[in-house]
């Protein structure tokens, strides 16, 4: 059990690193802005989940694929599909945000709190 967990770490590192390196190649070669790259990888995540191969990859790579934005896209889709099964047609629009509500909610709250305490600094 412990050994299995330890073996996961190099895999997580390599897969996570490789995904980011792939995005870096896109930046250098195509001069796309970060926002566009984020959307591209998000949609990759949505498609992976949509055709049902995200889960096996996630079992293998774990945080290596769920921490990059691909994981966010997959979570959105997973939630949307689940909610559709439960609530029908309208579930498609609510499910994604329901699934990712933890992350978005905490990010908004933490950003707000940090804003109250700190200010942007000029860079040297």
């Amino acid at each position: 059990m412990l050994l299995e967990k330890l073996i996961a770490y190099p895999i997580v590192f390599v897969v996570g690193g490789a995904i980011c390196a792939l995005a870096q190649i896109l930046i250098i070669k195509t001069k796309l802005t970060p926002a566009r790259i984020l959307v591209i990888f998000l949609i990759i995540g949505i498609l992976l989940e949509g055709i049902g191969i995200y889960d096996p990859i996630n079992k293998f790579a774990q945080a290596g694929i769920s921490v990059p934005i691909i994981g966010f896209g997959a979570a959105l889709t997973r939630g949307a599909i689940k909610a559709t099964a439960k609530y029908g047609f309208l579930g498609a629009f609510a499910g994604g945000l329901m699934e990712t509500a933890f992350g978005i909610g905490v990010a908004i709250m933490a950003s707000y709190l940090v804003t109250l305490i700190f200010s942007s600094k000029s860079k040297q």
């Binding site: 949509g50 959105l76 599909i81 498609a92 629009f93």
Partner: peptide
């Protein structure tokens, strides 16, 4: 862009399903 595209395209996938 991430949230908007995420919601739009995940909804589309779910609707296809």
């Amino acid at each position: 862009p991430v949230i908007v595209n995420g919601v739009v395209w995940s909804s589309v996938v779910a609707l296809i399903y």
